[in-house]
Computed example of a mutant assay.
Amino acid sequence: MRNYAIVRTNGFFVAFILTFVCALLGTFLGGLPYLSLIGALVISLILGMIFQVLPTPVDETKEGIGFISNKFLRLGIIMLGFKLNLVDLASAGVKTIGLAMVVVAGTVSLTYFLGRKLGVEKELAILAAGGTGICGAAAVMGISPQIKVSEDRREHQRENEVLAVAIVAILGTVFTLIEIGIKPLLHLTPTQFGVVTGASLHEIAHAVAAGSSGGPVSLDTAIITKLSRVLMLAPAALIIGAWYQRTTVKSNAKGKQKLPIPWFMGGFILASILGTFLPLGTAVLAVLVKIAYLFLGMAMAALGMSVNFKVIFKRGKNAFLAASIASIILLSFTILVSKAFF
């Protein structure tokens, strides 16, 4: 029994070191000029996949990797709330918040509808829809705990998470380059272009990269608009969890089950309140956000280490197609709205 405890401790320590290294490397590489389009979280995921080929004690680290991908994910999302300044979001006005609500609700619904019509399984369609409509990888990982699957489908669900993250990472990078490229053709003001990038792109890193090409006003507008979408993560996760539970129970005819409540999303909102109203200072908030991304990077690396990603390419085409169509419609919609209302 004592030897088993030692093995578990050593396994967790090895898993912690491996994921920590991946997160640090992801943060460093994500800050480089061209790799910034991909983002630190996705790079950490890729590094985790690469670590699978190394001669590490997989059986011993498996439990530690599972703990990190689960608990550190929640801790990272909670601390990510410090990035949201509620006063800044409120000052952005009803139009920006309203646009964020319409974009999130519309894009999530559209992507899910298209995915199901194309034959994508329910769980993968939900994750791809959340990542496309809200805030990329963080949304995928924030919504995933709300999707309760049986023990024998846990590995399959982890594959869905990786696939959904890969979809939004690729599409976000492609659409960032597209929006920068077509910017001269759109004849938008800096504010309007910031609204387009913040409302249509997948990751915060994508909105920053595209928004900065329009100047400081465009960048500030892009960040505020994007963070307005990030704010929707908590209510969206709760609504999706309730909807998924209800439809799954109904289809399986197993009777009423307990609704999964994302308590960590409450921590996310509390962190945003504390970061907004407590005099923590810009430097302290910046450190807290960096720590948040470090925890999220470790969770993404752990996810990459624990999944059989060879099967991803076999069943990801239709999900990618659904998210692509939804992203094109979203970009067209945000261009029209920005010209009409901003």
Rank of each mutant, 00 (worst) to 15 (best):
residue 3 N to E: 10
residue 4 Y to F: 06
residue 8 R to W: 10
residue 11 G to I: 04
residue 12 F to E: 00
residue 16 F to R: 02
residue 18 L to W: 03
residue 23 A to W: 04
residue 24 L to W: 12
residue 28 F to T: 12
residue 37 L to D: 10
residue 40 A to P: 07
residue 41 L to V: 11
residue 44 S to C: 06
residue 44 S to T: 08
residue 45 L to H: 01
residue 53 V to T: 12
residue 61 T to W: 04
residue 63 E to C: 11
residue 66 G to M: 14
residue 67 F to I: 13
residue 70 N to A: 11
residue 71 K to Y: 10
residue 75 L to I: 13
residue 80 L to A: 13
residue 87 V to F: 02
residue 92 A to P: 01
residue 92 A to D: 01
residue 92 A to I: 04
residue 93 G to W: 03
residue 99 L to E: 09
residue 109 S to T: 15
residue 109 S to P: 11
residue 110 L to A: 13
residue 110 L to M: 15
residue 111 T to V: 12
residue 113 F to C: 14
residue 113 F to I: 14
residue 114 L to G: 09
residue 119 G to A: 10
residue 120 V to H: 08
residue 121 E to N: 13
residue 121 E to Y: 00
residue 128 A to G: 13
residue 131 G to M: 02
residue 132 T to C: 05
residue 133 G to N: 10
residue 137 A to H: 09
residue 139 A to G: 10
residue 140 V to E: 00
residue 142 G to V: 02
residue 142 G to I: 03
residue 145 P to G: 01
residue 146 Q to H: 00
residue 151 E to R: 10
residue 164 A to M: 06
residue 169 A to D: 07
residue 176 T to D: 05
residue 177 L to N: 09
residue 187 H to T: 09
residue 187 H to M: 11
residue 191 T to F: 13
residue 194 G to T: 09
residue 205 A to I: 03
residue 205 A to L: 06
residue 208 V to M: 13
residue 208 V to W: 03
residue 208 V to H: 07
residue 212 S to Q: 15
residue 213 S to Q: 12
residue 217 V to Y: 06
residue 221 T to H: 05
residue 224 I to L: 15
residue 226 K to H: 01
residue 231 L to E: 02
residue 240 I to Y: 09
residue 242 A to D: 05
residue 245 Q to D: 12
residue 248 T to L: 07
residue 259 L to R: 02
residue 259 L to I: 03
residue 262 P to G: 01
residue 263 W to V: 07
residue 264 F to Q: 00
residue 268 F to A: 00
residue 270 L to V: 14
residue 273 I to C: 12
residue 275 G to T: 05
residue 276 T to V: 07
residue 278 L to P: 02
residue 285 L to R: 13
residue 287 V to T: 15
residue 287 V to K: 14
residue 293 Y to M: 08
residue 296 L to M: 14
residue 298 M to F: 09
residue 302 A to R: 06
residue 306 S to Q: 08
residue 306 S to C: 04
residue 308 N to P: 04
residue 318 N to C: 00
residue 319 A to F: 02
residue 326 A to E: 02
residue 335 I to W: 06
residue 336 L to M: 15
residue 340 A to V: 11
